[in-house]
Design a binder for these strands. Structure first.
Lengths: 196, 196
DNA sequence: GGTCGAAACGGACCGCGGTCCGCTTCTATT
DNA sequence: AATAGAAGCGGACCGCGGTCCGTTTCGACC
């Protein structure tokens, strides 16, 4: 006899064809983004290329943003792994301050590299609570805590991360400010906030 | 004889009908935003209501964002006037630190009040170099300078302003954090950055 | 007042993101 | 194997932002 109340099994085990489609869509999207560039990838194209109907795209990924976020995760996951369990100073093992600085520099470079995709995945925003940004804020909060900083750590983390935002960086670059100079300014900001 | 090289007259004095239309569009947009709420105002509606063609809207305001920014300016201008020449502590006359704190609090409340419109005018982003945000950054930079802060003042200003962003605030409110608590956290951030 | 080039106009048109709903496919159950 | 109904599917359809281009209006100069 199976139990009559589902209790806490997975609420929805995902049907086989659904899984197949999800994979096909993601693969098609990844390929299209790589070959044509994010801005030229439409939902219709992805659907056609994946061999599914457009409705299926939206069923599984909610919106274009959602799909792009999923694509972005593909690469972002690797970076997050580096942060969580990679070699120091980015990964664990180094003193918190070193990690924090390394984290910011790494995040900045990553933002510059994946700018277009990140924008597509966050709706041009950024200081938003999307998965990626959220991970960064959580990590910074964690490091601030290790550094003995007290106060509203989330708010402080948001402030710290703001200058690394792609839109901000791109604006600075338009003003002919080098990444190195931004990095230096950011380091200064971090030291002020940490109080070291 | 008129000069053959236009030198530096106004490059384009704006034709009479154009001015009339601009005004009609802005008035219609303002009215529609007030009555229906930003999200329900389409470009077609504004065009119809203003009695002009859709093309004219885009000619004068570039995009929906541009039009909304123009509408927003209507109210934002008043606030900016308060900051530039209103009574202290928001306006000039008070010590820089008082002004800075007052500025942040005022900005935060304004963001909360005009949230929807601001989002419409900045394309859901915010840490962007739109006119409004830019004014804020410039002002903060100015106050930081008066406070004797040295370093990359623009970058520090961006960091300071980040937690006041509408998207961020709305997220915090979703997490049941009160505006007062945000204010307190923000004051702390400012003191850290200023080094007081 | 007439003429002429430039500037502005307007609305048909396009592409894209997103929804809707009748049809198909899967899987649990007997 | 048959069945039933839930989950998934797909593509016609919609609304909106944005563009394009033939037509109209303006105003500077004669």
């Amino acid at each position: 006899m199976t139990h009559l109340l589902p209790l806490a099994d997975d609420p929805a085990p995902e049907r086989a064809d659904a899984a197949r489609n999800r994979e096909a869509i993601l693969a098609a999207a990844l390929e299209l983004v790589r070959t044509r560039g994010v801005d030229c990838v439409t939902m219709d194209t992805v659907a056609t290329e994946a061999g599914v109907g457009k409705g299926t795209l939206f069923r599984r990924f909610e919106s274009r943003e959602g799909l792009m976020a999923a694509v972005l995760n593909e690469s972002e996951a690797g970076w997050q792994a580096q942060v969580i369990s990679g070699p120091p100073p980015l990964g664990p093992g180094a003193p918190p301050m070193d990690r924090l600085l390394a984290f910011g520099h790494s995040r900045m470079r990553t933002n510059v590299t994946h700018g277009a995709l990140i924008k597509a995945a966050t709706g041009e925003s950024s200081a938003r609570s999307r998965a990626a940004a959220s991970f960064a804020v959580m990590h910074v909060r964690h490091l601030l805590n290790e550094l003995g900083v007290t106060g509203d750590l989330v708010l402080l983390s948001i402030a710290i991360m703001a200058p690394l935002d792609i839109m901000v960086i791109e604006q600075q670059q338009r003003d002919n400010i080098s990444l190195e100079r931004i990095e230096a300014g950011w380091d200064d900001l971090v030291r002020r906030v940490v109080g070291a």
